[in-house]
Design a protein around this nucleic acid. Structure first.
Ligand SMILES: [Mn+2]
Ligand SMILES: [Mn+2]
Ligand SMILES: [Zn+2]
Ligand SMILES: [Zn+2]
Lengths: 149, 149
DNA sequence: TTCTTTATTGTAATCATTACACTTTATTAT
DNA sequence: ATAATAAAGTGTAATGATTACAATAAAGAA
């Protein structure tokens, strides 16, 4: 696979971490870049299997773990039964709708937030997860109520 | 099991939700009240099996789910492979040490924080999870380095 | 007590993720 | 370029937390 020049230094950095940017991994990265829905490993697998018939689900898991370790992507643990992946590695909040399951991004300023209780702690990662019902679902519910009358 | 008078109104509220405060559930609640370490279902089971030899792990899971639904306890999803439980239901932050696994509480003021992106969303729950290395582990690491010299 | 509902228990099933052994591909040395 | 070495991909089996299910027990209502 031809690699664009802009990726040169990235690849170099990965080489130092001994993480190769293989065909499969680039495709997974590309999928995450085009699908900003915070997909699961299974969704990524299903989305790529047509284009890469040889793809193994194990490869998806292995690749995602490598990419997380290289800090190219972020792993989200919102529900206990599924990990999700995000190509945006900067700290931001995630809202999961308990009705439709969609996950929304929102801005959160946490750089300046260092709680007293964690003084002298080394903080590596900050996660903010909200749950509730999204605007779309609230509107749908409202319409259904009106139709029932 | 004899129930203390202070629980009277609580039990009434639970009755309305059709959730009975059985012997096992009270014991689980009591365990969570005495062990503020955010234990897993398995840790609760192991901690109670000596006192309640008939206890089933399924009961622990069922009870925890009922207590969460009744909002008597809170479910924490920090890592994907284990849910943890907290008798403190007020919103607060959790720090998980990546070295020793301990989970620390910290204060977080989120009542006033309503991100622009979630305008018109119904927010039911706010979770804040930090990860890193705790003070104890950092100090231990430091000592080990000194001894190696 | 008798009827009805809810809870407990043990076992089997589920399902996301990982372990493992093998093959393929990429990198390095000769 | 060829051979040797290291990393990655693949398929299948294992793992492990959680849930489903059916039978039994306990609690509440009548
Ligand atoms: Mn995101
Ligand atoms: Mn807590
Ligand atoms: Zn929704
Ligand atoms: Zn620690």
């Amino acid at each position: 696979m031809e690699i664009e020049p802009t990726y040169r230094d990235l690849i170099k950095e990965l080489k130092e971490k001994k993480i190769r940017l293989s065909y499969q991994r680039v495709k997974i990265l590309d999928y995450l870049n085009q699908h900003r829905t915070h997909p699961t490993a299974d969704e990524i697998y299903t989305g790529l299997i047509a284009e890469i018939p040889s793809l193994s689900k194990t490869t998806v898991y292995n690749s995602l773990n490598s990419l997380v370790k290289a800090n190219l992507i972020q792993e989200l643990t919102i529900e206990d039964n599924e990990n999700r992946y995000d190509i945006v590695t900067e700290t931001h909040g995630h809202f999961k709708c308990e009705e439709c399951g969609r996950i929304y991004d929102f801005k959160v300023e946490l750089d300046s937030f260092n709680p007293e209780e964690l003084k002298d702690f080394q903080i590596n990662q900050k996660g903010v997860y909200f749950k509730g019902i999204c605007k779309k679902c609230l509107e749908t519910n409202q319409k259904n109520l009106q139709n029932e009358e």
